[in-house]
C-alpha cells in the first residue's frame, strides 16, 4: 500500500518551502500579485508591508507610509489571498510511461501535491481534477490539511489506463469550475494541439488564469535509443520496430514542432506554458518557472 505522503516528498517540499521563504514575493505573486484576486481576504491581522504593484487593490494601500515616505506600500494581512487553485492532473495511460526513475504521472502528481501544499500553506484553497478521456475525479477546492490528504490519496488511487481526449474533457472541467480560479494543467499533452488549445481557451474565456505544465519523460524529450527497438504503443497505439537512430532527427523535429505549437498557442491565449522533463529535479523546474514568471510580472 502506498504511503499517504508518496507525492509529498519532504525533501522536495522542504526545498520548495525554503525557496518560497527566500522568494516570498515570488510565491505571493504566484497566488496573488500576478493574478489580481477577485476576492477580498477576511483576515484583519496585519502581517507585513510589501511594495505596491499595479493591480493591487488600492484599499490596502498604506496611505500613512505614502505620506511619510512618498512610496506606495500595501498592507498585507494573514489570509489575505484567499484564492482557488485547481490542479488538473492528467491520469491517462500515457502518463504511466517511465524510462528511468519516476513515471510522468508520479512526477506530475508530485508537482501537483507540492503546489497544493504550498497553496494551502498560505491559506488558499486548492482543488484537484483527475482526468483522462473524461473527468475521473473532481475534488473541490478547499483549504485544510485534511483536504490535502484527500487530494494526495486520490492521486495515489488514480489508475492510468485510458487514452486522453482533451477536446471534451477540458470543456467539461471548465464548465464545472464556476468561480475564477488558477488552473494548473499538468499533463504530457498527448493529444493534438488544437484540441488542447481549444480547451484552454475555454478556461480563459471564463477568465481563469491558466498554467500548463507539460511533463515529458527524459527519453521522450531526447529519444536516446541507439539499437533496434520495438516500441509498444500505449493508449491503444500499435507496436513499431524501428532503428531509433534513423528516426531520431525526425522524431525530435516532431517534438519540437509540437512544443512550439503549444508554446505559441499558449502565448496567444496568455497561458503560461512550462515544459519539464522527469529527469529535472522538481524544485528546480518549479523555481525556474517561478523565477521567470516573477521577472515577467515585475516587468509589467
Amino acid at each position: 500500500m502506498a504511503e499517504p505522503s508518496k507525492y509529498l516528498d519532504p525533501h522536495v517540499l522542504n526545498r520548495i518551502s525554503r525557496l518560497n521563504l527566500r522568494a516570498r514575493s515570488v510565491m505571493e505573486g504566484f497566488v496573488s500579485g500576478l493574478h489580481k484576486s477577485p476576492y477580498h481576504g477576511f483576515s484583519v491581522e496585519f502581517a507585513q508591508h510589501r511594495e505596491y504593484t499595479p493591480g493591487d487593490d488600492l484599499r490596502f494601500l498604506d496611505w500613512k507610509v505614502y505620506g511619510r515616505s512618498d512610496r506606495l506600500y500595501i498592507k498585507q494581512y494573514e489570509q489575505e489571498t484567499n484564492l482557488r487553485a485547481y490542479i488538473l492532473l492528467d491520469a491517462s495511460e500515457s502518463m504511466d510511461y517511465k524510462s528511468e526513475n519516476l513515471s510522468k504521472f508520479d512526477y506530475a502528481a508530485t508537482c501537483a501535491a507540492s503546489i497544493a501544499y504550498l497553496t494551502m500553506e498560505q491559506q488558499d484553497s486548492a482543488g484537484l481534477v483527475l482526468f483522462d478521456r473524461q473527468v475521473t475525479k473532481f475534488v473541490h477546492a478547499q483549504c485544510s490539511p485534511a483536504h490535502l490528504k484527500v487530494m494526495v490519496t486520490e492521486m495515489e488511487a488514480a489508475k492510468t489506463t485510458e487514452k486522453t481526449d482533451f477536446s471534451h474533457v477540458l470543456h467539461d472541467i471548465a464548465e464545472r469550475i464556476k468561480q475564477k480560479s488558477i488552473i494548473v494543467l499538468i499533463s504530457d499533452l498527448m493529444d493534438n494541439p488544437e484540441s488542447i488549445l481549444s480547451g484552454l481557451q475555454h478556461f480563459r474565456h471564463k477568465r481563469n488564469d491558466v498554467i500548463v505544465i507539460h511533463v515529458l519523460d527524459e527519453y521522450e524529450a531526447r529519444f536516446p535509443f541507439d539499437r533496434m527497438t520495438r516500441f509498444d504503443g500505449l493508449e491503444g497505439y500499435p507496436h513499431l520496430i524501428v532503428d531509433p537512430k534513423a528516426l531520431r532527427e525526425a522524431y525530435l523535429e516532431e517534438v519540437s514542432k509540437f512544443t512550439s505549437e503549444m508554446r505559441r498557442g499558449c502565448l496567444a491565449q496568455r497561458v503560461d506554458y512550462v515544459q519539464v522533463t522527469t529527469d529535472q529535479p522538481i524544485e528546480v523546474a518549479m523555481s525556474s518557472y517561478l523565477a521567470r514568471r516573477m521577472a515577467r510580472t515585475r516587468a509589467k
Binding site: 504511466d96 498527448m190 535509443f225 539499437r227 533496434m228 520495438r230 524501428v242 534513423a246 525526425a250
Partner: peptide, 26 residues
C-alpha cells in the same frame, strides 16, 4: 530485426509522424 529491445512508449504520435516522414528515405 529479430534482435530488438522492447519498450513501452507513450509518444507514439510523434514516433509515427517521424516514421511516416522518414520511412522512404530510410
Amino acid at each position: 530485426r529479430q534482435r530488438y529491445k522492447r519498450v513501452q512508449w507513450a509518444a507514439m504520435e510523434w514516433l509515427l509522424a517521424a516514421m511516416k516522414k522518414t520511412r522512404r528515405r530510410m
